[in-house]
Write a protein that binds this DNA or RNA. Structure first.
Lengths: 210, 210
DNA sequence: TAGATTGTTAATCGATTAACAATC
DNA sequence: TAGATTGTTAATCGATTAACAATC
């Protein structure tokens, strides 16, 4: 199927739609118009309709959108019906916190393994998963069909391990290291969470107010 | 001083410039042209020059930019010379992980207090800071001139606590709860880190590759 | 001075918003 | 049928890129 390229601006808004629709669903709202949704979300109704129509016509003239149907449709677009076998590489504070974060499981991201180089961490169990030595990562990925790696290593170690992950056949890296990974294989998807960048943006905006 | 409004697109790129310049500085690079920096960062040289010129002329024709000077200038634009007294509200896994994250201190974000409602957490010490009851938050903010709150509560509790924070005079909220906070005071800055949104974006992109 | 590279204006591109015919 | 609201085209707006004169 030939699909027109969807802009990243649109893609980044999909989870927000999904979130709001999930809330509506929890509150037993059955239908919603783009206008009403636009009021709640603080975006234009036009944008909502444009965004959704990149993926198909989910609404009905004169009626609006069925909340449950649209919620499920967006979930499917986002690939949330898939299950992703996940490992966390870097079992420090952040890695362990993410391992304990149950919301990820709910969306199909299941943590199967935890890895670190620190001998003081290896052997410790977090949420029923034993932290393993980084040396074992390659075989673990293959044996357990790991799709996704969460990278919570310091920036010095991140690039090498990232390329190892690529060579072991991983499909995506959720990167928390404060560095832009340059991977050898362009088919591996990297999504960055640069926490410090976000914090600096906050700092900028606070400063502007003073 | 009347300053023209800087677009958020530009502001969000500043931390990335700051990061690359920091790396260059670590590697004792003295000067860099917009062209060379554009190669490294994977953006256009034109964009770099445009972005920087929103804040002033930092370069020199025929020479380029002095790395250290530009690094410090951007740091100042981002407000990193300021010190921010910070509290973390929600001392679960994520809250504790962030409390332990030393990179924030380096940028002037100093964690002064940790708060939670869970009696099993109250009294525990994380990185030398005792977790306090949420009831004590208001007086603590005033007594310790807290500027910033990191919100790592579940989404049910986040809106109320956020508005409490506003009423106690906080300047900014770094929000990790999966909800868009609607605050009573528009002068309080909110910066969202929606981890699940980021993960869903990754999921979408992986799915598109398959 | 000649070469390099900025700062800045102008051109292009893409994303957002407005408008409205189609239709439930 | 009349009213509401979508899907979609057209208009607008803003952001990015290209070009080049200014100048170190």
């Amino acid at each position: 199927m030939i699909q027109k390229k969807i802009s990243t601006a649109v893609i980044k808004r999909l989870p927000k739609y999904y979130r709001y629709l999930g809330d509506l669903l929890e509150n037993d709202v059955v239908r919603i118009s783009s206008k009403e949704l636009s009021n709640r979300m603080g975006v234009t109704a036009s944008q909502i309709r444009q965004d959704l129509n990149n993926f198909g016509g989910f609404g009905q003239q004169g009626y609006g959108y069925n909340v449950e149907y649209l919620y499920n449709a967006i979930g499917k677009i986002l690939g949330l019906e898939n299950k992703y076998n996940t490992i966390i590489v870097g079992a420090g504070n952040l890695g362990q916190a993410l391992a304990n974060y149950t919301n990820f499981d709910k969306r199909g991201f299941e943590v199967k393994g935890l890895f670190d180089v620190n001998p003081r961490l290896i052997g410790i169990t977090v949420r029923g998963i034993e932290i393993k030595d980084l040396d074992e990562m390659g075989s673990f990925i293959k044996e357990n069909s790991i799709d996704l790696a969460i990278l919570t290593l310091p920036k010095q170690k991140a690039p090498k391990v990232a390329n190892d992950l690529v060579s072991y056949g991983i499909k995506g890296i959720w990167n928390f290291a404060p560095i832009d990974l340059k991977l050898s294989n362009k088919n591996v998807i990297v999504e960055n969470v640069h926490l410090l960048d976000s914090l600096m943006t906050l700092s900028y905006n606070i400063k502007e107010r003073i």
